[in-house]
Design a protein around this nucleic acid. Structure first.
Length: 518
RNA sequence: GGCGGGGUAGCUCAGGGGUUAGAGCAGUGGAAUCAUAAUCCAUGUGUCGGCAGUUCAAAUCUGCCCUCCGCUACCA
């Protein structure tokens, strides 16, 4: 069984700035990448930007910039976001990089070489609105009193034709359906799979894969009048990132096919229909899974510029802190579904789970050790049944957590961890070490040791979600860097007594509500 | 219109033919005081969207209805 793991986010279109949706996808993917690394996998995590196309060219022009300069500017924002969010990507790809031009041209040529009939020159025609600079399907148009078609916005349209290359997607209907059937886990969640299957079952039409009416793209091999159109270019980034077209290189052999493409639900068709078809045609292996996440609504409303409720990731970090934001998103957004961001709810969740439950557990434990054990982790005496019960619950929980994580059900993973944290807090109250201090100091030491060891476990388990805080706690306990892996959550690697700790300070400070702070 | 998925406690949701329908958060009462006014314990008379049916038994299956949402191809 392979211990390599290749995971990607979708590449972000640089037409706009990063918003909460981008941040969510990056964090979700990052959590999976970190989880796998902590579980002993050799992980490659790729993210990046999609920079070609008419829209970017136009936006650049509007801003009085050359396309490349405009892309440099926006791509930098996305790259900065990965830093801001503590995303552990191993590479950041931009579709304007040389390596990607090479790969994109190569896949085009591979398709032509392997299946010459799959690419053919024809013409793209349709109703074009000059005002909207876009094509419309007839069903979108309305017939005016003069008998001509108009866009919903009332703009006139004209029938235009443009030469372009087509990809023979129609030839892949049955192959794709068979692929979905043979690989039931390819599209997750199931509801999205149903949509795709029913879409494909209706039959596929060929799609245009080049354009001549703008230049901002990868030139088509042997026909420089054309640039490669959108998705063939964009999707190829996933193999560019592992060294394609050099399919003999270590990187490619190690990581392709990808284990998971994490994407938004709006672009499943491109990833679940087009991309597999392109790869089949080019005679390359297909990715193992496409995971489509939902969107984040804000106070129950769709995030949109016109409503004016678009949230920049930085807003949340300023309000809650980075780890808190990461935790919130992973905890509140159910697997593959839309999530809702509500400020009140966020305060509640973060305070309850992070400040009160885990943060306070760490604080109360370390404070007692600091004050009553000469600031050193005590050496325990024999464990009682209660002690073992708590520790074993932590040592034994991982297989279940892993099952949830493998399905990207991180809200369930967190639920599982926090259940045990609650048990640890209950254990503190039952054992009442503050009473033992007077009656039975030796027993108190054991209790505090058990708690410190429990905290070591929690800190490791929590690393994918709240890496900074997790490491901070592990630093306190002087846990060596190379022991911060899931396999170390076991009795075999339990804390040694005698480790000196510093005066504790809160890991997750309690958030004050705005009203109260003002 | 067609296909698909929902409508369960104040909120977010889990469950899914079988004893008194669950969790977290919020609320209420109590305990404790080590700790970040944190923690612990106790506490839910909910028409499980509506109506009808199948069944010894339905939140769980079937039909119809109401309602919300997604998909129904070449902007990405």
């Amino acid at each position: 069984m392979s211990k390599n793991f290749y995971i990607t986010t979708a590449i972000s279109y640089v037409n706009g700035s990063p918003h909460l949706g981008h941040a969510y996808e990056a964090i979700l993917t990052d959590v999976m990448a970190r989880f796998k690394r902590l579980d002993g996998f050799n992980v490659k995590f790729l993210t990046g930007t999609d920079e070609h196309g008419q829209k970017v060219a136009k936006t650049a022009e509007t801003n009085g910039m050359e396309p490349k300069a405009f892309c440099d500017k926006t791509a930098a924002e996305f790259e900065a976001m990965t830093e801001t969010l503590n995303i552990s990507n191993d590479d950041f790809i931009r579709t304007t990089q040389d390596r990607h031009y090479t790969a994109s041209k190569a896949i085009w040529s591979a398709i032509k070489d392997n299946n010459p009939d799959d690419i053919y020159l024809s013409k793209y025609d349709g109703w074009y609105s000059v005002r909207d600079e876009a094509y419309f399907t007839e069903s979108e148009l309305e017939k005016g009193e003069d008998g001509n078609f108009y866009t919903p916005g009332g703009a006139p349209v004209e029938w235009v034709e443009e030469p372009c290359y087509f990809f023979r997607l129609s030839a892949y209907t049955d192959k794709l359906l068979k692929f979905y059937e043979d690989n039931p886990g390819f599209i997750v969640p199931q509801s999205r799979k149903n949509e795709i299957v029913s879409f494909v079952k209706d039959g596929l039409q060929d799609i245009s894969i080049s354009r001549t009416n703008f230049k901002w793209g990868v030139p088509v091999p042997d026909d420089p009048d054309h640039v490669m159109y959108v998705w063939l270019d964009a999707l190829t980034n996933y193999i560019t990132g592992v060294g394609y077209p050099n399919t003999d290189c270590d990187e490619y052999k190690t990581f392709w096919p990808a284990d998971i493409h994490v994407i938004g639900k709006d672009i499943i068709r491109f990833h679940c229909v087009y991309w597999p078809a392109f790869l089949m045609s080019a005679n390359l292996e297909l990715p193992k899974q496409v995971f489509a996440h939902g969107f984040i609504n804000v106070e129950g409303q769709k995030m949109s510029k016109s409503v004016g409720n678009v949230i920049a990731p930085q807003n949340l970090i300023d309000m809650f802190g980075l780890d808190q934001t990461r935790y919130l998103l992973m905890r509140e957004v159910p697997h593959g579904q839309d999530g809702n961001f509500s400020e009140d709810h966020a305060f509640q969740r973060i305070n309850s789970d992070l400040a009160n439950s885990l943060g306070n557990l760490v604080q109360r434990t370390l404070s007692m050790i600091y004050k009553n054990c000469d600031a050193a982790i005590p050496n325990p005496n024999d464990f009682t049944g209660d002690d073992k019960k708590l520790l074993n619950e932590i040592y034994d929980c991982f297989p279940t957590l892993r099952k949830h994580a493998d399905k990207m059900e991180f809200h369930r993973v967190l639920e599982g961890i926090w259940k045990i944290i609650a048990h640890a807090n209950a254990y503190v109250d039952e054992q009442a070490p503050w009473a033992l201090r007077k009656n039975d100091p030796e027993r108190m030491k054991t209790v505090l040791y058990v708690l410190a060891e429990a905290i070591r476990g929690f800190a490791i388990l929590v690393l994918p979600y709240t890496p900074e805080a997790g490491h901070k706690i592990l630093d306190r306990l002087s846990v060596p860097e190379d022991e911060r892996l899931f396999e170390y959550v076991s009795a075999d690697h339990a804390l040694s007594g005698g480790i000196i700790i510093e005066k504790p300070e809160g890991v997750f400070p309690r958030l004050e509500m705005k009203e109260e702070a003002a």
